[in-house]
Design a protein around this nucleic acid. Sequence first.
DNA 1: CACTTGACCTGTCCGC
DNA 2: TGCGGACAGGTCAAGT
Length: 288
Amino acid sequence: MPELPEVETVRRGLSRLIIGKVVERETHDTPKGFPNSTSDVVEFLLGASIIDVRRRAKVLMIDLSSGYSLLIHLKMTGQLVFVGETRFGAGHPNDSLVNELPDKSTRVTLTFTDGTALFFNDQRKFGWVRLMPTIEIPNIDFMQKVGPEPLSDSFTAKEFMQRFTRRAKTNIKAALLDQSVVAGVGNIYADESLWGAKIHPSRLVGTITEQEFTTLFHELREVMNLAVEKGGSSNHTYVNAEGKKGSYMDFARVFRREGLPCPRCGTTIEKLRVAGRGTHICPFCQQL
DNA sequence: CACTTGACCTGTCCGC
DNA sequence: TGCGGACAGGTCAAGT
């Protein structure tokens, strides 16, 4: 799925495209993707207008005038694509990137009163959308447990390091991917930031020095800031709210670059398995 | 509690 | 061209 930079890119796009729109209709395929009752949909979604689009970690929140919000997790292959009237215009520049929607991966469709629509597409069906009172969002398990936003101005290297003490006996990659340690890190930016800090992903947290944590903190923020600036990373499924791909992968240093030279020392990049995930390293820069 | 592994799904790619 | 297996940007619920 989209990691923090991709979800943030979607949030920014939606913020520009859907705030002020009024929901006219909602359809979904199975209850798994949208578990709310029809009566809740009628009462709190239909006829409500969108007043804000927020993000916490990898979760999007679309706030409605009814006092309810849509919480959305894209997981591995979720997309939120807005389709305006121009979408199907002949020769429209996005026509080649997003085909006519809905398609077979569409799980939820929101239609607005002006005829535009928002599609939640999700090839692997891991993602979800649910409706809940806005005021209750901070009380849900996830919000209680999730770690700090890594790009927040108030987040410090010291706090970053302290968050890991609980996970001293696992490897640094598993700990980075743990959303309760730090929010929003996923497979791409874990590999990219560990390469930046010259830390092998299998190193146990307890063996990482204060200096290494400080470097990792700065590398993680740098790589995520760059990714947000580039509109995120795209594999074949990720697109932003306008159906466009992000360009961070053009700047990736190790992720999916096995067999290519390390941009720092020229050693061939290797792919291994750490924390059950495909993991990319420079075997010279990142030693155990 | 912390840690690891398999499960959840569909689609694609790679080797035989 | 077909088929099996591995794998894909993420969590969860189980097990130890």
